[in-house]
């Protein structure tokens, strides 16, 4: 079965000269369709970098990243854009909603970018799925942290992704809100069947996933199911 996303001997470095840092050091990983994978590690372990690399947001210094069996390096700009629009979605730690759009418009923007016949077309329906139909016309600044994360989830669903990448989705939320967000993600994952990769430092969050890959100083040090 073709992986949704994979990396082979991946190396990612930042900076120049004496300040150059190796964030990922020869990491190899596969994400199967529908799989729930957690990337766990302390701050600076490389989990966010690996997440971004899998999603094509970061250019590898060495090694290779594949999306649905196709090497990212072989894709042109338009093909990458299409990948990001229709196959990969993100939920960032701070939600990263577009501040000048309402909840409705944030979801509509993603639907429009995807422009996929398979994707949902009704932002209100998606907002309803995350329980925020009543906040459709609110701006991100008028929502709580949890509400912003739920809108981010609705936006991600608007892309009808094969892979959802979540970077510390509960990092800025209190434990109760965070738990509800995680429950929602789980429910949507079961509903829509996308692969889920979550970067987290939290053991309990990681435990909700089918597989946990532990990272330390840019290397995979442990894998557990």
């Amino acid at each position: 079965m073709t992986s949704v996303s994979a990396c082979r001997e991946l190396v990612v470095e930042y900076g120049h000269g004496d300040g150059r840092v190796r964030a990922l050091d020869h990491v190899s990983l596969d994400v199967a369709p529908g799989e729930r994978l957690a990337l766990r590690g302390r701050s600076g372990s490389g989990k966010t970098t690996l997440l971004h690399a899998l999603g094509g947001l970061v250019e590898p210094t060495g090694g290779e990243v594949e999306l649905e069996g196709r090497p990212l390096a072989t894709l042109d700009e338009e093909a990458r854009r299409r990948m990001r629009a229709t196959r990969i979605a993100y939920v960032f730690q701070g939600a990263n909603l577009l501040p000048t759009f309402t909840g409705f418009e944030n979801v509509a923007f993603a639907i429009r970018a995807a422009a996929s016949p398979d994707a949902p077309t009704d932002p209100l329906m998606l907002l309803g799925l995350v329980g925020l139909a009543g906040k459709a016309e609110h701006l991100p600044g008028e929502m709580s942290g949890g509400e912003r994360q739920r809108v981010a989830l609705a936006r991600a669903l608007g892309q009808h992704p094969g892979l959802l990448l979540c970077d510390e989705p509960t990092g800025q939320l209190d434990s109760d809100t965070g738990a509800r967000i995680l429950d929602l993600i789980d429910a949507l994952q079961r509903e829509f069947g996308f692969a889920l990769v979550t970067a987290t430092h939290d053991e309990d969050v990681a435990a909700r996933h089918d597989r946990v890959v532990e990272l330390e100083e840019g290397r995979v040090v442990r894998e557990s199911a």
Partner: peptide
């Protein structure tokens, strides 16, 4: 014009400009 529910590009452009 947009009522907080813009969907088209022109609507989204207008909505964004209005809030900026």
């Amino acid at each position: 014009v947009t009522g907080g529910r813009a969907r088209t590009l022109s609507g989204l452009l207008l909505a964004s400009a209005g809030r900026r």
